[in-house]
Design a protein around this nucleic acid. Structure first.
Lengths: 216, 216
DNA sequence: TGTAATGTTTACCAATCGGTCAAATTATCC
DNA sequence: GGATAATTTGACCGATTGGTAAACATTACA
């Protein structure tokens, strides 16, 4: 007889690791496109290549699957911001933050869309994380940016909106990918658009922030 | 007996106008949060305060409701870009475009989210519009921006990515509203954040683009 | 190799889904 | 006011939903 599922996490078998991986991979495919409510367990089961009850053997409910997926994705998603370094110089820190975020949009678009879907729905599953750990991390980095501004290393500006603008411009290339490609046309739908975007965004933020025009 | 629905558009009664308005208003509420697949006719009926068969009297299918809603929303959504004027001077045009887009994010967040949901799902209902009318409009405005750059009025930059970055930064305040509020904290969740955002974004784009640092 | 734990599947359930239908109700217009 | 068209509703349909039960198959391990 199967062990009660509460005990399953005590010791994990090889098969558990593999199957849970397989399921979360499929779940990412489905949830990132259709959101939580719009996705069905049957869809995920089909993508994962296993039967629905088999999925439910590893994750008791659709919610549990979604939560496991979000937990796994969120940590990596914040890595670039964590790497944002107070000791570095502003220009290279901002440049490399933009570059890292753009790389993530290019290499992990599903993760970005999963998160975007969650936000659009009002963050029902991650609101506490936004108000807690995320806010703390952003507060910390905003303080760094403010220090830079006070020291005259960058223009005076609202550090929160600076961070928001880097998030939005970079994630746009994952979340609105279909629109970007449609507008750029077939011929510019290779990965070149990410390099163009990086060039533009670095220019925008570096010129826009590194020199203080406000009292020129 | 009721007129076949194909003929309904021939002459519209007072009640038709009112009810269709009421339904689309409710549909906007629901679709903008849950996306097409995640929304149900019952939800919309409840919000609209009418029975499900009554909804289906005015819109034959869920798809028809969604299409009618998108058609109505899209035209207004592109208005600010259409107003972008080649004859004006670059600084004031960019400033007012940012301001208008931010106002729309503030005043019509549901419309923004409806659109964002559609993009996340791969634009199944509006792909032709993106590749057609939208692309043409953007091409036209991009040409204007390129003229400005060639004339030395703004820095040389990719006009498409400039437009993308204005879209993404402004719509962020509608689509990711819950995240913005969580990070800013309760005390900054009044409408003041839109003014702060406007100040920051105008600074960013004006300083970032209006002076050419690339050959300084 | 035997056996107990683990993993998988078939068949199924109640609830909800998008949508239909006919009957009942209301508005319109002569 | 009565006929006719427009609107609204309750009852219902088959398909799909999230999830369960139990039989069956496989694995790990002594």
């Amino acid at each position: 007889m199967a062990i009660p599922r509460a005990a399953k996490t005590l010791r994990r078998t090889r098969i558990q690791e593999e199957k849970e991986e397989q399921i979360l991979e499929a779940a990412l495919d489905v949830f990132s496109v259709s959101g939580f409510r719009g996705s069905t367990i049957d869809q995920i089961a089909e993508v994962a290549g296993m039967s629905k009850p088999n999925l439910l053997y590893y994750f008791r409910t659709k919610e549990a699957m979604h939560r496991a997926l979000i937990d796994r994705v969120l940590f990596n998603w914040l890595e670039p911001l964590r790497a944002f370094d107070a000791e570095g110089n502003p220009e290279s820190e901002i440049r490399s933050y933009i570059r890292r975020k753009l790389e993530m949009a290019r290499d992990f678009p599903r993760e970005s869309r999963l998160f975007a879907n969650e936000m659009l729905q009002g963050a029902p599953h991650v609101l506490d994380m936004l108000k807690g750990p995320l806010k703390e991390l952003v507060d910390e980095k905003a303080a760094v940016i403010r220090t830079w501004a006070k020291g005259g290393k960058i223009a005076r500006c609202d550090p929160y909106h600076l961070i928001f603008s880097i998030w939005s411009t970079t994630q746009h290339y994952a979340d609105f990918d279909v629109q970007v490609r449609a507008v750029l046309g077939e011929e510019h739908s290779g990965d070149g658009r990410f390099e163009d975007a990086a060039r533009f965004l670095e220019q925008l933020f570096v010129n826009g922030l590194l020199q203080d025009h406000s009292d020129a």
